[in-house]
């Protein structure tokens, strides 16, 4: 690979834009196709298909074997609530290659001592999403863990509007019923609201904060790997 292509590819990744590297495996000839260029590329349809599934693979074009390395933006995990579950989740998320941001306006919870090495923002979610914390997008997972509608709801609304691939909210069925009523009142459709995973997490009988963190992360990974990604805009 040419060093300039590698630099260009890493720049696209850093900017959270998808790109596909096309390699002729017979001679190693390569070119980089950025997300915005796919529509006008000669290989547009096949590239679009691979981007939609986010899967790399070999394709045969005009007797040549090409390998498509599909790069979609690194997955981010935004957690609302600097709570005990989030503390347990931080090292697990790092191991799973999920870039974690924890947002909680309650400064007693959001202390660096409780979250060493974690991007921690002691502000209201609606005040920082899109500024101090990059705007949510479809390569983001959002987990709302505060139990407090004042803090959780604005983040859930932003996540649904942004098409996050995973949206989960902590709380009992009763709490969730009240949440559904509030979101309906706010104009969200039943389909949108139905995307919220509640009760949050895979049903593994989780009891401790670390077990709940594991259940949530398991559900995030399942959403990431099993469900086809939405078509590129």
């Amino acid at each position: 690979m040419r060093a300039d292509l590698l630099t260009e590819l890493n720049a696209e990744r850093a900017a959270r834009r998808a790109a596909i590297l096309v390699t002729d495996i017979a001679d190693g000839a390569q070119r980089l196709v950025k997300e915005a260029e796919i529509a006008v590329d000669p290989l547009g349809p096949v590239l679009g298909k691979h981007l939609a599934s986010a899967k790399s693979g070999l394709v045969e074009v005009d007797g040549r074997t090409l390998f498509l390395t599909v790069h979609v933006p690194p997955v981010r995990l935004v957690v609302i609530g600097a709570v005990h579950i989030s503390q347990a989740m931080a090292p697990m998320a790092a191991g799973l290659d999920l870039a974690l941001s924890v947002i909680d306006p309650r400064t007693a919870f959001a202390t660096p001592e409780r979250f060493p090495g974690v991007e921690l923002v002691a502000e209201w979610p609606d005040a920082v999403l899109g500024s101090r914390v990059p705007a949510l997008d479809r390569y983001c997972a959002l987990a709302a863990l505060t139990h407090d509608p004042k803090i959780d709801d604005p983040a859930l609304k932003a996540a649904l509007a942004a098409g996050c691939f995973y949206v989960g909210a902590l709380g009992s069925r009763k709490t969730h019923a009240a949440r559904v009523a509030r979101l309906t009142e706010a104009g969200f459709s039943p389909e949108q609201i139905g995307r919220i995973r509640a009760p949050i997490g895979l049903p593994i009988g989780a009891v401790s904060p670390a077990e709940i963190a594991l259940a949530v992360l398991g559900e995030v990974v399942a959403a990431l790997r099993r469900v086809p990604r939405p078509e590129a805009a």
Binding site: A3, L6, T7, L9, N10, R13, P74, A94, G95, D97
Partner: peptide
């Protein structure tokens, strides 16, 4: 050091 798919290409560049 634990390496992930995310940082391998960045490491190649550096």
């Amino acid at each position: 050091m634990l390496s992930t798919d995310t940082d391998i290409l960045s490491a190649a560049e550096s």
